[in-house]
């Protein structure tokens, strides 16, 4: 990857520009508050913070590759978190320890991933079989998932987990935070799926030109359903990380993560019309956002200004990227 980025062709890719942006942001923040930004404490705390929305951005990436979008990622994450939280609270309880707690944790995780896959299957059927536009299908289903979580909890937070649950979000494996390990594994898996499997190639082809994909005898229904199932599973993993880090589950956690996930995917060079996207780009985008976010935090910039800067960064990167996307000048500007 690094070699490719340095080759002549590589310098014009969005990933190369992103790598520069990430480095510039890192250096700027390091220069502005060197002793605090570069402290090991800050580095570790950053590594704990970004995986949860980074995983959601991965889910967004794979749906955008096919020209779709998944607006239900946060809804799925919260629904799975609420369901596994209810399992943990009702069957294990806060006092459970040792093997019993571990067993229930695995059961809860298993159920969460299954619920995520089912939610993704539901989205996939809406998009593929019924032909709904992905924006509307996932907007509606996202409300349904959030709504089910609200109805199950009455809107209040679920808490009182066994202590092992906190391990997922707060422990370190050989000094590396567990959420980061989970993110790296998922990102690597998604990279392999998108670049090395026929499924990934077909998804990219479908995103680039749906009609050509149809004429190439690709089973589009099956393809889209699998894409949304993967997105649902990734969202459920993000839900587990959020649940563990917050040590509770609530139907309306992280509603700002939806914007953030779209933003990171687009910032990462994923083409929202489909057909192009690199996991590497998304990772670099996540890092830039986190450097920016932590750095601004140290400079005591308010959360509101951070929102302003994120939005401005999104539009800026899009303006820079479109200069290369000459073919979209001809395409319709709406979606």
């Amino acid at each position: 990857m690094v070699l490719r980025l340095l080759s002549k062709q590589g310098t014009s890719t969005p990933e190369f520009r992103l790598a520069i942006i990430a480095i510039v942001v890192f250096l700027a923040m390091a220069a502005l508050s060197p002793d605090r930004f570069l402290s090991s404490q800050n580095i570790i705390s950053m590594a704990f913070q970004f995986p949860e929305f980074a995983i959601l951005a991965l889910a967004m990436t794979i749906t955008m590759m096919t020209g779709g979008i998944d607006l239900s990622v946060v809804g799925v994450a919260n629904l799975t978190a609420v369901i596994s939280a209810l399992i943990l609270v009702n069957f294990a309880g806060a006092d459970a320890t040792g093997a019993v707690a571990l067993l229930w944790l695995f059961a809860a995780l298993g159920v969460a991933v299954c619920v995520g896959a089912l939610a993704g299957l539901f989205n996939g059927i809406l998009v593929a079989r019924l032909g709904l536009p992905p924006i509307l299908a996932t907007l509606g289903s996202g409300l349904v998932f959030t709504g089910i979580a609200v109805a199950m909890t009455g809107g209040s937070a679920v808490m009182g987990f066994p202590d092992v649950v906190a391990w997922i979000g707060n422990a370190q494996l050989l000094l590396v935070p567990v959420p980061l390990v989970i993110f790296v594994l998922l990102a690597a898996a998604l990279h392999v799926i998108l670049t090395k499997t026929s499924f990934g190639l077909k998804a990219t082809m479908y995103g680039a030109n749906p009609l050509a994909a149809l004429f190439a005898a690709i089973d589009i229904n099956k393809l889209l359903i699998r894409v949304y199932v993967i997105s649902g599973v990734l969202s459920s993993v993000a839900g587990m990380v959020v649940m563990s880090r917050a040590n509770s589950a609530k139907a309306d956690y992280g509603s700002s993560y939806l914007l953030l996930a779209v933003l990171i995917a687009v910032l990462g060079g994923v083409n929202p019309y489909g057909g192009y996207g690199r996991v590497m780009g998304v990772v670099l985008a996540v890092l830039s956002m986190q450097f920016l976010s932590s750095g601004l935090n140290m400079l005591q910039v308010s959360n509101f200004a951070r929102e302003l800067i994120w939005g401005a960064l999104l539009i800026f990167v899009m303006v820079v990227n479109t200069t290369d996307w000459s073919r979209f000048g001809k395409a319709r500007s709406g979606h």
């Binding site: 979008i69 924006i135 914007l259 779209v262 933003l263 687009v266 929202p272 019309y273 509101f304 200004a305 951070r306 929102e307 302003l308 800067i309 994120w310 939005g311 401005a312 999104l314 539009i315 899009m318 303006v319 479109t322 979209f328 000048g329 500007s333 709406g334 979606h335």
Partner: peptide, 19 residues
């Protein structure tokens, strides 16, 4: 700039509110 409308307005949503 011919950017996709969803992306532009997602961006300006946070810019306007943040500002």
């Amino acid at each position: 700039c011919r950017l996709p409308t969803l992306i532009v307005t997602l961006g300006t949503l946070s810019v306007f509110r943040g500002f």
